[in-house]
Write a protein that binds this DNA or RNA. Structure first.
Lengths: 326, 326
DNA sequence: TGCTCGTACTAGAGCGCTCTAGTTGAGGAG
DNA sequence: CTCCTCAACTAGAGCGCTCTAGTACGAGCA
């Protein structure tokens, strides 16, 4: 920086002003500074700049690496943070790196706020975290003082799925459950409330889960049901579960959607592939990311207190895995 | 830090020594410092510590968020970096965030080395990057001066796949190609060399790609072949391609492996799911990550020059999608 | 007793920026 | 012509650490 200043014939402070894009430098000087920097291959050091500043303007994001939907969310978070002039720092959770560790790393970096994607952190840990900085949980609905929540209206999503199936003429609709996964309880609830409201017969849940394998297991349970007792339609906890389910029932000889209709949840990219064409409930990754950043930014910049959960509406996407019952 | 020092009755320098785990502090003092820090909720600021240090010991990792196999690699990179006492800084590539941008962010953080996972950077950019810091490309084989390469022996993987199928009695084996994806050219080459060596008839490539959708498209091409001209076995560019392919041919009524055998590449988690049970060529994510870190660490710590490509052996994993031809 | 040596500890100068509190000088008002 | 204003620029004190070059002191030795 010293060198750049010397070469441009100005003080170090001026170089700082120019690179921050702050007011107080003439157009000519700006150009000279940039030219000098280019000649010298100078690039400001972010670490030092953050140290000198009162605010770091860094937002930590904890996410599961390799999770397709988390990827969609990260894309949106990067974009939204740039708009509010914040910087995103990623900290991944992997089989060998716990969420606690991921959070600790972000704290040591002095992030100002933290976004937890699909967090599995226990309430006490969340509560302690929220006491240190603005925290927002995306996807998972937590009821912890100080923790903001941005999530999809999971219950409403399942209501849409059930209503769609009901509209096609289905009456025996079953839900492949997500167990303890984020959103699973709400989806279960949405399924039940819609079934009740529409006067559908109550059916036991199928044991499902987050992955394709869980979906295949749910299919196995369905196939073991006595003939005549089986459902004509299934709502799966999520798309991956639906995909595994579909694969398994088709291989068992069932025709979809002729003999069985299937609805997923998330609308991951694979759901829209032509050969899959899964009818599903779309989660708006873009809105979720944007709202998460807005929430933490407004607490940081506007001093707003944590608010009530922000709920994003899901949308039914009808493709080729649902149809009228035979 | 000042406060902690005061509370423990020592100087700031001592606190630094204790937290760095450096020599020069008595056991009693260590305890007092830690106790004081705990009372005050003090945690050292990484940014400042890195600034003060000559070395930042930070390694940047550029990866595609949401890519399952990249996730496996990240896990391994985190673990390996910890062993060499390096810190991993993630920078994700998403639809809206280019690889160039991801790299730029890492440079501004003053990373000492950079690991590019499945990079698509053009050679000039790679070359310039390598001029600034030790860089290693994982998965993609680049021939750029100064850029280290750690990759799987893709050609050997396909040779194993073809040999396996040949051993089962297949003669008409076709390859669903990966186009310009990292490793695709080598896999094509491995397929061809094995076919030639085993005296198999030459068959045109199927247009495949990285995703399930590409695999389904390849299946469409195969199904359009005149009866009798079709292959009895297919090697897919990767697992996702194989999965899409499988789904499509099965829905067209083909039995796998009775009428058609399929081999994937990568061994992503889904390949091992019971209902999928894909025979595939496993890439050793753990070894790839470890070797990538070793490479950059040895250049940084040992001053070693960039070396020749490190090639990791793949392994055939036989599951249920391959069998003797009808 | 005086000397060296090693351990435990401290002072203070950086690291590469930011930012406050200036200084300078040109232009406009009175 | 003086005074004020404002834009353009500078000096220098931080930010929270690390690290070098010390100091203090007790133990061991001749």
């Amino acid at each position: 920086m010293e060198d750049v200043a010397a070469r441009a014939g100005v003080s170090r402070a001026l170089v700082s002003i120019v690179f921050r894009g702050a007011v107080g430098a003439s157009e000519g000087t700006r150009e000279r500074v940039f030219a000098a920097a280019a000649d010298l291959g100078y690039q400001p050091d972010r670490r030092a700049s953050r140290l000198g500043r009162t605010r770091t303007r860094m937002l930590g994001v904890v996410f599961g690496v390799g999770h397709a939907f988390h990827g969609d969310l990260i894309d949106s978070l990067y974009a939204a943070a740039a708009v509010s002039d914040y910087e995103v720092v990623l900290s991944g959770v992997t089989p060998r790196r716990s969420e606690e560790e991921a959070v600790r790393a972000l704290l040591a970096e002095r992030c100002e706020g933290i976004v937890l994607v699909g967090s599995a952190l226990p309430s006490p840990a969340l509560s302690e975290l929220a006491g240190r900085l603005p925290a927002v949980s995306v996807l998972r609905d937590v009821r912890v003082e100080g923790v903001d929540v941005v999530r999809t209206d999971d219950a409403e999503g399942l209501r849409q799925a059930v209503t769609h199936l009901h509209g096609l003429g289905h009456r025996r609709i079953v839900h492949a459950d997500g167990g303890r996964a984020p959103g699973a309880a709400q989806r279960r609830r949405g399924y039940r409330s819609a079934a009740r409201r529409l006067g559908l017969p109550s059916m036991p849940l199928l044991p499902g889960g987050l992955t394709e394998e869980d979906g295949a297991r749910a299919a196995g349970a369905l196939l073991r049901l006595p003939p005549g007792e089986g459902p004509t339609a299934v709502t799966a906890f999520n798309d991956r579960c639906a995909l595994g389910f579909l694969d398994a029932v088709r291989r068992a000889g069932l025709m979809v959607p002729e003999q069985l209709s299937v609805v997923g949840f998330d609308d991951i990219r694979a759901a829209s592939y032509a050969h899959i064409a899964l009818t599903t409930i779309r989660q708006d990754a873009d809105a979720l990311g944007r709202l998460a950043i807005e929430r933490v930014a407004s607490r940081l910049d506007g001093g707003e207190p944590p608010g009530s959960p922000v709920v994003v509406a899901p949308a039914l996407v009808v493709r080729a895995t649902t149809g009228a019952p035979r």
